[in-house]
């Protein structure tokens, strides 16, 4: 059992949907992003997705691209992102942290070294966009062996034939990408997403969380209502990009979380 499994068990017992929030580590600087991160659990965030900046984020829209650039320009590295998670863990033993990003910085550090460091830093799960099931031996299987969940993305193009392949080595939860597209793009409608979520839930006992295109508390409520929870990323990162103070960002996060929790 990881913190992710514990959190979803608790939410299920309470009859609540999960609210997952994404922030980019080091955006716009380490101090600000750590302050936001520390405030997320109190704002109602059940799972934190901590973005690892990368120069070439091929699956991300402009908002997250720019966040990654700000972080890199501010000197953020994988080493510092791990240190940030460690600093967060000193004050919070309960909230799961999922690191999300691209494979090259991890590969560059060395998979074994990265997994040992991530475990020690209190990381519970990984989402690595450019590692499909076909590349499971790279990181997915070693991560599971190290006790870290590997969370897979399922998408509208993941058809019935492929779904078992996608679910096979997935743990923690399934992240359903509600649109064919990049982060921060068009909004998904609950009525379109519901049958897809049902299709996935029929094939797995894992919680199914829906992300991409959710920007308002109402949308969070609508999407969380037809799944086990929802993810908001770009809408939060956008506020940080506009230079809003941590308190204001967290206020918005609280409103989004309240939306999801009202579902």
């Amino acid at each position: 059992m990881t913190r992710i499994d514990d959190s979803f068990a608790r939410l299920r017992a309470e009859g609540k949907k999960a609210f997952v929030a994404y922030i980019m580590a080091g955006d716009p600087d380490l101090e600000t992003s750590l302050a936001v991160m520390k405030g997320l659990p109190a704002a109602g965030v059940d799972v934190i997705e901590l973005g690892m900046p990368f120069t070439d984020p091929m699956a991300d829209g402009e908002t997250i691209q720019l966040a990654g650039q700000r972080a890199l320009e501010g000197g953020q590295t994988l080493e510092k992102t791990l240190a940030m998670a460690r600093a967060f863990r000193e004050g919070d033993q309960k909230t799961p942290i999922v690191m999300m990003g691209y494979y090259n910085p991890i590969y560059s550090r060395g998979v074994e070294r990265f997994l040992a460091d991530a475990r020690e830093a209190g990381i519970d799960g990984l989402i690595v966009v450019d590692l499909p099931p076909e590349e499971d031996s790279e990181l997915c299987l070693p991560a599971q062996a190290a006790g870290i969940n590997f969370i897979r993305l399922a998408t509208p193009t993941t058809d019935a034939k492929r779904l078992p392949t996608v679910l096979q080595n997935t743990s923690g939860f399934v992240y359903y990408v509600s649109i064919t597209g990049i982060t921060g793009a068009g909004a998904a409608r609950p009525e379109d997403v519901a049958p897809e979520v049902a299709r996935i839930k029929a094939a797995t006992d894992l919680p199914v969380i829906v992300g991409f295109g959710i920007t308002t508390p109402e949308a969070a409520q609508g999407i969380a209502g037809i799944a086990d929870g929802c993810v908001v990323g770009s809408a939060i990162v956008k506020l940080i990009g506009e230079g809003r103070p941590a308190a204001e960002v967290l206020e918005r996060v609280a409103a989004l979380a309240a939306g999801a929790h009202a579902a």
């Binding site: 091929m58 699956a59 494979y103 966009v129 450019d130 590692l131 499909p132 099931p133 076909e134 590349e135 897979r152 993305l153 399922a154 998408t155 509208p156 193009t157 993941t158 058809d159 492929r162 996608v166 990408v177 064919t180």
Partner: peptide, 19 residues
């Protein structure tokens, strides 16, 4: 697996994988 030695492979997002 699309490998030439350790090189090559299919490092793309799930959306593109079926295609």
């Amino acid at each position: 697996q699309g490998r030439f030695g350790i090189h090559g492979g299919r490092f793309v997002s799930e959306t593109l994988m079926p295609l």
